[in-house]
Design a protein around this nucleic acid. Structure first.
Length: 866
RNA sequence: GCCCCUCUGGUGGAAUUGGUAGACGCGCUGGAUUCAAAAUCCAGUUCCUAACGGAGUGCCGGUUCGAUUCCGGCGGGGGGCACCA
């Protein structure tokens, strides 16, 4: 019987319609089933989905469909991270309103995502730029303000003088604005901040509880929070300027090295400098110099250590009569610790660089463990390893860690120091001088200060009558929007025109999905029932900021009573990127669609299709517009179907690793789709008429065993998100049942075998249904089922059939495999040894002698040691 | 500079976590089918050797009956943080 090729263009839309009509993926909050919340990081509506999205959402959908089949009430929603700069850039370039641009993009991408056949509850969809969403975000802001979680403070920002806006550090490239190219200035601006540093310790210690997170991400978050323990030490001034009268206070993690101290250094923004600079123009110039040295990493790498002798000295806390000179130095940060350090050149590289430059004394006070009697020799490399303290008074002879404790105790006894913990983590500045973001619901009144907009007056809507022909924030120059009366005293006042960082929008969307219809930010009951997210899937690029902010937000929302959990994401999975070869012709990069590959004598060469000229094949890189190495998911779905695209994204590469997109790989997946369809549709009518037969033996039993074993293994693989392994097992099963299936189709199969094949086929379809849902429905139907496989429980394997009663054990002699032996599964060690020693091969090696040792590893291997 | 991860055939990767290295896919080779091609099917495919055998998981060494897996050292690739005191 000749069968038609599987045509996804007809089949896929048909089944999507059936799922929609059955409202199969709409999730009910009142279900009695156990919950499972699977979430992929929601996309920014750039206009079109890319292969990275396909990979991300294919993985999430496998999990969602698999868990649904396993009997869970699954929440699998989708939304849009829709505020942000690209919409404003588009407005400036194309004269289109950001709102219009964004919602058009959302519409386009929604239909692309729907063509993938994802099991998403679209009834819960929202965009962060929907007023219904940012209204609730403003409510959260007001609550956080009320609970003391929000502050307003003046801080240094990168200011682009041409675009009239603040830039994030990532938007400053070589000291210039990424769009304008103007030299970025450091400006002091009043900013709203979330007090994430109040939670430094909590956010750090709770990382230990996140067992289902990649170790890599946990490490990155620990480093980002950057806890260090040390001492806050007071150094009394000896020689001081008239204006300076307090102690000089510094923070150090190495108070044990105090006997090696030879100078003090303060930040150029330190209060001491500010005071002295008033009548010291040279110092003023030096401070100006330091300030100009921007924040870009390139600057910092190349910067030379520079200092300015302030003409002050402080007393050494331990050495009677010893004075340390005080410098202003460009490498000391005002933002960390106290903005002042003591310099111990022998045991800190920066201090050493500085000391060598200004000819300061270098005293080694730590001896290496290899030679604990002699202080480390110091050339141009500081000795920072663990060691034994030398020439250090009461600390001498102690190891580093003990010495640090002793130092703190000794200083504390003198009233000069106390233990202090410092964190690298800074408070989260959320003010952005942009239009397309959530307005910060605050009104500035001359008399009352910054006043929160009362909840009854929310939302503060973004005005739509704005233009983008002039750089800067259009909210600032809006004729009416800014002018309001103070909610407190009713006098004329000014609205806050800054909007929130878009990371705020993505810090709680997962909670909103649990009850997106709710008037408050959440329905706490629904949020507590659904959260934490059981499986969160997204890119590693969000390992720090988004995930850390969300962890903070969840705690803040708990304080404000919107939910009652601490950690938002129980399981986290970071998937790899989709990468592709690059092609470069005379005019620059060329897309894969414009070239054809020829392979001669093992050499691959690429030619431009239109001109026929050869182009060079470049390195494999992340798909990006600039490298033009992109493959459009729409094209792939149009020519192969969504199932093929999904299946390929799950095959071959482990999901956490990068996957190389290749045409031949996609064709391989498509071949599998066609093969499965051909095999199943040809046997479909026979299988439909087959009834189950009990008691199987021989070939039928082998097929049954293989089917049950595969079912068990695939389930375990999917639990671990090892999609590539699950895919390989499906190939194996299909290879195994291909011939029996052909016999079934030809009506040459006995009832036992036909029955075994039918069960194997049912298992197979159920197993690939989460990956290729449309093909699965079509196959399910053609093999005689009346239901939809998307609504069918996951089959159960029989323990009896996944265990073999005969085992084929490898037999090693001196660790080299020499034979196989078939033994009963429950055979004892003695029985196995006797059988092995009776083997001809083994007797040949033994040559009449006794083995020195025979090792039997149950169900694994036998090793004979001669 | 500090921290982390990685290294397996021509290629993407498997290997029940100390027990038959190379599952499965891609590619390649041969064959069947075809007027021919596409598609499909069958067989083969780590390397050396005619074969018997031997070698082999980046390199060197160790532990073990047995190491891709554990330990020490070296090298290549990737990532994160980075004047954080």
């Amino acid at each position: 019987m000749a069968t038609e090729r599987y045509n996804p263009r007809v089949t896929e839309p048909k089944w999507r319609k059936s799922w929609d009509e059955a409202k199969l993926f709409e999730t009910n909050n009142d279900s009695p089933l156990p919950k499972y919340y699977v979430l992929e990081m929601f996309p920014y509506p750039s206009g079109r989905i890319h292969m990275g999205h396909v990979r991300n959402y294919a993985m999430g959908d496998v999990v969602a469909r698999y868990k649904r089949a396993m009997g869970y009430n699954v929440l699998h929603p989708m939304g849009w991270d829709a505020f942000g700069m690209p919409a404003e850039n588009a407005a400036m370039q194309n004269k289109v309103h950001p709102k219009e641009w964004t919602y058009q993009n959302i519409a386009a991408m929604r239909s692309q995502l729907k063509s993938m056949g994802l099991s998403i509850d679209w009834s819960r969809e929202f965009a962060t730029c929907d007023v219904e969403y940012y209204h609730r975000q403003q409510m959260l802001f007001v609550d956080f303000l009320d609970k003391g979680l929000v502050g307003r403070r003046v801080s240094k920002v990168n200011w682009d003088p041409e675009d009239q806006t603040v830039l994030a550090n990532e938007q400053v490239i070589d000291g210039r604005g990424w769009r304008s190219g103007a030299i970025v200035e450091q400006r002091e601006l009043a900013q709203w901040v979330f007090k994430i540093t109040d939670y430094s310790e909590e956010l750090l210690s709770a990382i230990d509880t996140l067992d289902d997170w990649p170790e890599k991400v946990r490490t990155m978050q620990r480093n980002w929070i950057g806890k260090s323990r040390g001492a806050r030490i007071h150094f009394p001034f000896v020689r001081k300027a008239s204006v300076v009268d307090k102690d000089l206070v510094c923070f150090s993690t190495r108070p044990d090295t105090l006997y090696g101290a030879s100078f003090m250094a303060v930040s150029a923004e330190h209060p001491v400098c500010l005071e002295l600079a008033e009548d010291n123009p040279d110092l003023k110039a030096f401070m100006e110099d330091c300030r100009r040295m921007g924040t870009s990493t390139a600057d910092i790498e190349t910067a030379e250590k520079k200092g300015f002798d302030l003409g002050l000295t402080v007393a050494h806390p331990f050495i009677e009569g010893k004075e340390l000179p005080v410098y202003a130095a460009n490498f000391v940060l005002m933002e960390y610790g106290t903005g002042a350090i003591f310099g111990c050149p022998a045991h800190d590289q920066r201090d050493l660089d500085f000391a060598r430059k200004y000819n300061l004394e270098v005293t080694s006070v730590v001896a290496p463990l290899s030679d604990p009697e002699t202080p480390a020799e110091i050339g141009n490399i500081a000795f920072v390893d663990d060691g034994v303290l030398i020439n250090s008074g009461l600390m001498s002879g102690l190891r580093k860690d003990e010495a640090i404790n002793r130092a703190i105790d000794l200083l504390a006894a003198k009233g000069l120091a106390k233990e202090e913990i410092n964190y690298r983590l800074r408070d989260w500045g959320i003010s952005r001088q942009r239009y397309w973001g959530c307005p910060i619901p605050v009104i500035h009144c001359d008399d009352c200060g910054a006043v929160a907009v009362p909840k009854s007056d929310l939302p503060v809507r973004l005005p739509e009558d704005v233009t983008f022909d002039i750089p800067g924030n259009p909210l600032d120059r809006h004729p009416t929007w800014r002018h309001v009366n103070c909610p407190n005293c009713n006098k004329p006042a000014i609205r806050e025109t800054d909007t929130m960082d878009t990371f705020v929008d993505s810090s709680w969307y997962f909670a909103r999905f649990t009850a997106p219809w709710e008037n408050n930010p959440t329905d706490p009951e629904a949020a507590n029932a659904w959260l934490p997210v059981d499986q969160y899937i997204g890119g590693i690029e969000h390992a720090i900021l988004h995930l850390l902010y969300s962890r903070f937000f969840t705690r803040a929302m708990k304080v404000a009573g919107h939910l009652d959990i601490d950690e938002p994401f129980k399981g986290l999975f970071t998937q790899g990127m989709v990468v592709h070869e690059t092609y470069k012709g005379v005019g620059g990069f060329i897309t894969p669609a414009e070239i054809r590959i020829e392979e001669t004598e093992g050499k691959r060469r690429a030619f431009e299709i239109v001109s026929g000229s050869e182009v060079s094949i470049g390195s494999i890189e992340k798909m990006s517009k600039s490298k033009k190495n992109v493959v459009d998911p729409d094209d792939i779905i149009a020519s192969y179907g969504a199932d093929t695209a999904r299946f390929f994204m799950l095959s071959d590469s482990p999901p956490e690793r990068d996957v190389i997109w290749t045409e031949s790989g996609v064709e391989g997946s498509h071949r599998f789709v066609q093969r499965v369809w051909r095999l199943l549709s040809e046997a479909g009518s026979v299988l439909s008429a087959t009834t189950a037969v009990t008691g199987k033996e021989g070939k039928a039993l082998d097929i049954s065993r293989a089917a049950h074993k595969t079912l068990k293994a695939v389930g375990e693989d999917l639990d671990k998100l090892a999609f590539n392994k699950a895919v390989a097992r499906l190939y194996e099963l299909v290879n195994l049942i291909a011939a029996p299936l052909a016999e079934v189709a030809a009506q040459k199969s006995d009832p036992q075998t036909t029955s075994a094949v039918k069960q194997a086929v049912d298992f197979l379809i159920s197993m690939f249904a989460p990956m290729m849902p449309h093909l699965a429905e079509e196959c399910w139907q053609v093999t005689g089922h009346q239901t939809m496989v998307a609504d069918t429980p996951w089959p159960k394997y029989e323990n009896q059939l996944v265990r073999d009663d005969q085992l084929l054990l490898p037999v090693q002699i001196n660790g080299k495999k020499r034979a196989d032996i078939s033994v009963a599964a429950e055979a004892g060690e003695d029985e196995i040894i006797a059988a092995v020693l009776a083997l001809d091969v083994v007797r040949g090696y033994l040559d009449g002698t006794q083995p020195r040792k025979v090792i039997v590893v149950p169900k694994r291997i036998v090793n004979i040691v001669l």
